[in-house]
Write a protein that binds this DNA or RNA. Structure first.
Lengths: 327, 327
DNA sequence: TTGTAAGCGTTATCAA
DNA sequence: TTGATAACGCTTACAA
């Protein structure tokens, strides 16, 4: 069984090559009966269009690229993993495949764009881990390269399509749950101000307390992400709180440990619902990653036709409650 | 700046298109001086070969495909994640890119091969999660599709190239460590017999005990993977052991929990060194995933030239010791 | 509604 | 050592 091309199909169906192409690309233009004959030939021969030939002609590869990052502290790395799986899954029915690349930083990533675009004719990029002053989005936008971001353009105008999870809603939900279960001294353990995500997560906590008329002033701490740093940062706070909302599962784990060591009971809620949270029974705010990935693909469709205006989607996280028992 | 093709370069260097192609593909055949002039033109114009055109001519895409699996229980999923990152990293310098696909089972995966091969001209596959009676490897082998597996061909002959981690050596290392630190009642918690990986991990434990003349009979338990099931399966065992080697971090976590609840001190060592192990301070056997990925790419080079005979590589895991404190 | 012709950018073949 | 020519398989005009 040698290579089945459009010519093979045409011959078998007794039509010209062009008609076969029309059946594939503009079916409306082909008479019903002819179309059926062609489709039957396609099925019988197991014909599949060559991407390379199609790409050469159209300049589009039906490939989208995503950066795979090293599993940072290993705890939060799994977030990207789940997102990637969702993306690959959602892309396939839309006729797209996902290509991976790595990069050490934004500059390096931009250099990779250049290569990917000129050598592979990549159709679009999906960016994750957006941040303030992100050089990548402006680079892509300037060149008219289609892309969507998972993560809003912190501080920049909404000129492109993006999907994000409502971080503030997540911590608000966690805070509300703590209030509902009778807690009144609810603290927050987060990251230093300046990161959009971190600030939003803090805001969700602060505003919920404010709305409930429960004081929160002085009940927060900030440190870089990590179990150790979280434990250290929260030590003083433990004297004045009986519950803690945290900006990440790593921090939450640190807080749990510090609480256990200090002997002060403290309910802790983390963020991201990572494997670690599942494992140790830590309540955590869960991002709808599969859904986020699917929405990214949806938005990409609009971006690729250049038809639709940029759209932005904010997804609601959910709260996964567990008995914060240690292992 | 419109599209820079081989013709643009040829014109600028004052040579024919073919000479430019020769500089790229068979430099030996081009006179030094000419080659330099061409290379200079390439650099000046920022020329990059079009993959699509090249692929159409050669039939090779410089793309390798890997399946991304859903993050199963979330704990062990990160193993694949790290492997993927290593693979993408190692493939790039070799001139290859990694494409992702998903599949629900082996049959579905084989259907995907068919599509990927005929539509995208994929050059090779990297398979993970090999198992007994793996239909995928025989399908690929029959059709002469280049592939390597991360994981040996359990029960089948070594007719293809693969990389694997010496599972038995990992549990042996863990068992030896326990012996060295004075333990004499060392149990094993693993999976039901029949999975190659699980059996190997059990063997490493059993043979090390046997070699040391320490009895192990009756000190093992088997259950499906998971924290809950691990905890349940190990309950009885806890009366007769003071240390446990486990086939996974999930099982180890279950064992730790059961031990804590029963009040019997028990040293536990897990397998895979996942984020959870790091988080809770669980000692664990660590697989050299980055290295495994790099070796897969190395072996693939041999498979792709059809030059070298199949090669097999067994990598040594390492033992990461932590204070098995709970969080 | 269907067919013809041209060309996308590259490399393999062959001749100069 | 270099250059001309012909594919590779497809789609987009345009003509029938």
């Amino acid at each position: 069984m040698s290579k089945v091309t459009i010519a093979t199909v045409a011959e078998r169906a007794g039509v010209s090559r062009q008609t076969v192409s029309n059946v594939l690309n503009t079916p409306q233009v082909v008479r019903e009966e002819t179309r059926e004959r062609v489709l039957e030939a396609i099925a019988a021969l197991g014909y599949r269009a060559s991407q390379a030939a199609r790409q050469m002609r159209t300049g589009r590869s039906r490939l989208i690229a995503v950066r795979i990052e090293p599993a940072r502290d290993g705890i939060n790395g799994s977030v990207l993993d789940r997102f990637l799986h969702g993306l690959t899954d959602a892309a396939a029915p839309a006729g797209y495949r996902v290509m991976l690349y790595t990069a050490t930083d934004d500059t390096d990533e931009i250099a990779t764009y250049e290569n990917l675009l000129t050598s592979y004719d990549l159709d679009a990029f999906v960016l994750t881990s957006t941040h303030h002053g992100d050089a990548r989005t402006s680079w892509l936008a300037e060149r008219g390269v289609p892309f969507v971001t998972f993560g809003r353009p912190w501080g920049a105008p909404d000129t492109h399509s993006w999907v994000d999870v409502d971080n503030a809603a997540g911590t608000a939900m966690a805070t509300r749950h703590l209030l509902d279960t009778g807690h009144r001294r609810i603290g927050f353990l987060g990251w230093p101000p300046g990161s959009g995500v971190g600030d939003a997560r803090r805001d969700g906590w602060a505003s919920t307390l404010a709305a409930a008329g429960v004081p929160g002033t002085g009940l927060d701490a900030a440190t870089e992400d990590g179990i150790e740093s979280g434990a250290a940062a929260v030590t003083d706070l433990l004297a004045s709180v009986d519950a803690l909302v945290c900006a990440s599962d790593s921090l939450a784990l640190g807080a749990l440990r510090a609480a256990r060591e200090s002997g002060r009971p403290c309910t802790v809620i983390g963020f991201d619902d990572t494997a670690v949270a599942q494992a140790v029974g830590l309540s955590s705010v869960s991002q709808p990653l599969t859904q986020a990935a699917a929405r990214c693909i949806d938005l990409l469709a609009g971006v690729l036709d250049r038809s639709a205006a940029p759209r932005q989607l904010l997804l609601e996280p959910s709260l996964v409650l567990r008995q914060s028992a240690a292992i």
